[in-house]
Design a binder for these strands. Sequence first.
DNA 1: TTGACTAACTTGTATATACAGGTTAAAATA
DNA 2: TATTTTAACCTGTATATACAAGTTAGTCAA
Lengths: 240, 240
Amino acid sequence: MSENKYLSIYNDLLSKIEKGIFKPGMKIPSENQLVEQYETSRETIRKALNLLSEHGYIQKIKGKGSIVLDVRKFDFPISGLISFKELAQKLGKPSRTIVEQLELMKPDEMLKKHLHVTARDDIWKVIRVREIEGERIILDKDFFNKKFVPLLSKDICERSIYEYLEKELQLKISFAKKEFFVEECTDEDRKYLHVKQYTHVVVVRNYVYLDDASLFQYTESRHRLDKFRFVDFARRIHLH
Amino acid sequence: MSENKYLSIYNDLLSKIEKGIFKPGMKIPSENQLVEQYETSRETIRKALNLLSEHGYIQKIKGKGSIVLDVRKFDFPISGLISFKELAQKLGKPSRTIVEQLELMKPDEMLKKHLHVTARDDIWKVIRVREIEGERIILDKDFFNKKFVPLLSKDICERSIYEYLEKELQLKISFAKKEFFVEECTDEDRKYLHVKQYTHVVVVRNYVYLDDASLFQYTESRHRLDKFRFVDFARRIHLH
DNA sequence: TTGACTAACTTGTATATACAGGTTAAAATA
DNA sequence: TATTTTAACCTGTATATACAAGTTAGTCAA
């Protein structure tokens, strides 16, 4: 599958945790045992285990071993970089994406600021509504610099833009910065979303960067208050 | 300072980024140059650089080097494990902590569920209000298992519980899981916070774990809508 | 029986080496 | 001059070794 040894070991162990072969509270095999199982060196095993640890799947305890953490209660991984399609698949709820707008435009002041572009650049603007169990919950406004994304179609936007960007265009999405806050409903929110009686929406500003640290996408994701949920895992660094 | 080589290098490079000695967009010295500067091995340098990369301070580019990312626009690090005291210091705004309640109690059903305790356990309950620039913005409800925290005082709660736990009790706080959502204001919210006209609050459930993966603290942090802000950094894993 | 010690495990850190593969600029060639 | 090649960098991965330090269970002695 993967030509990368430690990543494929990470993936293998992760799937064993997700499938429940390794259960929460349980010890996974020691580093030396894994060295034998995967026929590799200890450092390679440690790279895989450290990734699991950083992402909150295991806890390493010096002298004892690694135990599996309980992730089931936190099975809503908006944290990290995951597309709506991937998320919807994990949730297992009937969901749908409706493309409301798709056009090439010149950047306004807001975009010049958020997407670091000039008036000469062309920008793809995509407005999509995410429907979960028949309710219009999320309004996604995506902006791409045409320099990185020459062509977009309604069909691509309905399926998964990420899949298109990574598989077709071979863009290497590397990291994202997210900013969360709450804002009053705009007319646009009321137009596209079923906001019910709510006066506010949760806004997630998402800045997505490529491999070479160039900003190529800005997304504003507007969530209906009552349906918003976000989960985060963080480790504390002790300087000792 | 630190007896740990790669962590002290991480810290040193981090402070150079924060002080602006290494500026955003700039290349930091190559791994081999850092090997000479710090008189250590390349793997040790790489451990420090990988930490910086995971935390969003630098971007490593194969064949080229590592460039400093722009963190100034994201200078509100609620992400990660940071106490209110540490946060307030970074913000540089006048802030105050008011202890509204401090008592030893038996767990109710909610706590039995969230703190994984039995009816026999004693629980410290701390209710504090965080005031920023004179406004009551955040309501923190902390619950500690007495097994881990034998004694608490009003004085400790006003200063920093974390500092007390880590420095005095030598507890090793290791990781936390956070859950964000929006909820309708309760009477308690209205009693303790200046909620203004708002009908909802942002709730952050915080589960804090020690070194050995034991859950020792549950916190419910209730933020006034308009003042809530959260920032997140995430990297995408490519299986290649 | 109790307590101290020891041996055999565990993970954590530091080092060295080798090679793969991306980047860049200078040197060689057409 | 324009293009190709090469050499010297850069980071990424994989391996091996050594020792530090925490945990555990069994052994031995008081």
